[in-house]
């Protein structure tokens, strides 16, 4: 134990010594945290996710074709794709005339207009995409491009709500929940999307039921 630690811990212990009638740790059911909308929702998880994701300016897609159309219409012609998604996504984009790289070069992160990486799950209640360090091929590839596409391949990873997603955080050294595109309201409270991260946040489900 370092000297500094002794001092801090000693001060904390001393501050609490003699304190009587301490508050006990309350327990509560997960349901206590559910929003009314979630409790009353009768939709399947993916549909509920799509609605809530859309409410935070995210775009949920069910078909690679929808992604191709979106990228082409927006003029987002060049980007990166996780090699693991080459067959299911990358090649479809290439066939449609888009430029896809399967290597992410840190020296030229601004050359990728879109970045396609795997999602580790979604949360229906909040419209959140979950990324973790193991499934995300490169943190920068999911952050630096203007358009980020998180691809959900495992249908079991649709978590109903926040408590369920917390229970399933797992052992990954880094989990990030992404609830919409990067945003700020720092200047006069005006909402601007795409500050440091993506200005467009997409979640594409593949291999699921339509």
């Amino acid at each position: 134990m370092s000297e500094a630690q002794d001092i801090v811990m000693g001060a904390v212990k001393q501050a609490l010594s003699g304190l009587r009638g301490k508050t006990s740790l309350p327990d509560y059911e997960s349901e206590f945290l559910f929003s009314v909308r979630h409790k009353e929702s009768e939709q399947d998880g993916w549909t509920e996710f799509g609605e809530n994701f859309s409410a935070v300016s995210g775009k949920a897609m069910n078909e690679v074709g929808d992604l191709v159309e979106f990228l082409k219409e927006g003029g987002f012609e060049k980007g990166y794709c996780d090699p693991e998604l080459k067959e299911q996504v990358g090649e479809v984009l290439v066939a449609a005339g888009l430029q896809v790289s399967y290597a992410f070069d840190h020296q030229r992160v601004d050359d990728y207009v879109f970045g396609i990486t795997r999602a580790s799950g979604v949360i229906a209640e909040s419209g959140t995409v979950i990324l973790n360090d193991e499934d995300t091929v490169d943190r920068l590839a999911a952050l630096a491009p203007w358009v980020h596409v998180a691809v959900l391949t495992d249908q079991k990873k649709v978590f109903a709500n926040i408590p369920q997603a917390i229970e399933n955080l797992g052992n990954s050294s880094n989990v990030i929940w992404v609830t919409g595109p990067s945003k700020t309201a720092d200047i006069e409270g005006i909402l601007i999307e795409g500050v440091h991260g993506p200005g467009v946040q997409i979640c594409l489900r593949i291999g699921g039921e339509n």
């Binding site: 419209g127 360090d133 050294s173 989990v175 929940w177």
Partner: peptide, 20 residues
Amino acid sequence: QLTVYTQFINGPRSKSQPSG
């Protein structure tokens, strides 16, 4: 409902992760 980016950091980057 949630802030856009909520990070749960459980240590340094994982072995397979090139960034971070």
